[in-house]
């Protein structure tokens, strides 16, 4: 048995809503950075979205990127300071709607940075509008009758987009259960290890509840992830050490 201490990188209580998955992801990222000895050399590029709420509570050097541009900002840092650990922390709207170009081009160039992408299927910060990841039929404040894919196109699966690219690491995890969170930690560790060994671009997408804008209790939110989200966005490691897996 070992101690389980809240990482020191979490310098203040988080500011997310009750049950928000961002809190779990914050803790897992903080644990991994501390365990890998990276707390002092990490620079984070922070998205616009609920991610913004981390700037004062998560104690690494941060740059607040414009909405969608976290990857480009992170690339600017990493290229001039390759010795730093550089990661982006972004929502799905930020990374996959307005910032899809920057996200994909960082992957296409196999930039040696780590992208953490929080898929909560919604624009959380702005009050629950449709995101690229919103499920077909899912109600949001801008798809009040449910997402009509004949108008909006299909939900965007970034793992599928990146799978064909020559990148270092690609995985999708979840925070919907203790088991998922333990696996997620392995993925996030593998992603940072990829970067620190010069293995190229690493991306971890994380399925995460937004109880506030899903207008569900946390319990219902977790059921929703289990029953509706995971079938569309399966979990697993898809690229490891630059090689495609069988997942």
């Amino acid at each position: 048995m070992v101690e389980k201490r809240i990482p020191q990188l979490l310098v203040e209580d988080n500011k997310f809503c009750p049950g928000c998955g961002h809190g779990n992801i914050n803790r897992v990222v903080a644990e991994v950075l501390e365990e890998m000895g990276l707390a002092d050399t990490t620079v984070g590029s922070l998205a616009v979205g609920c991610a913004c709420l981390m700037m004062d509570t998560f104690g690494v050097d941060w740059i607040q990127a414009p909405h969608g541009r976290a990857a480009a900002v992170g690339v600017g840092v990493k290229r001039v300071r390759p010795e730093c650990c550089v990661f982006t922390y972004q929502g799905d709207g930020d990374s996959l709607a307005i910032g899809l170009s920057e996200t994909l081009y960082a992957a296409i160039r196999n930039e040696n940075i780590t992208a953490i992408i929080v898929n909560n299927g919604i624009f959380g910060m702005t009050g629950g509008q449709m995101a690229p990841t919103t499920l077909s039929g899912q109600r949001t404040t801008t798809s009040p009758k449910g997402r009509d894919v004949s108008i909006t196109g299909q939900p965007l699966n970034i793992v599928n987009q990146c799978r064909q690219l020559p990148i270092g690491y690609l995985a999708r995890g979840s925070v919907a259960s203790a088991k998922d969170i333990n696996k997620l930690k392995k993925y996030i560790r593998a992603a940072f290890e990829t970067q620190m060994s010069g293995g190229g671009y690493s991306l971890v997408e994380v399925l995460s509840p937004c109880p506030t804008n899903w207008k569900m209790s946390l319990e219902k939110s977790l059921e929703h992830i289990e029953n509706d989200v995971k079938p569309i966005y399966p979990l697993g490691e898809f690229i490891k050490k630059g090689e495609k897996t069988d997942a």
Binding site: G76, V77, Y105
Partner: peptide, 19 residues
């Protein structure tokens, strides 16, 4: 770095300048 767009270019500059 030839950026994918001016949007990316200025934000790479933002990152490098911050560093």
């Amino acid at each position: 770095l030839q950026a994918e767009s001016e949007l990316a270019g200025i934000n790479m500059v933002y990152g490098a300048a911050a560093a």
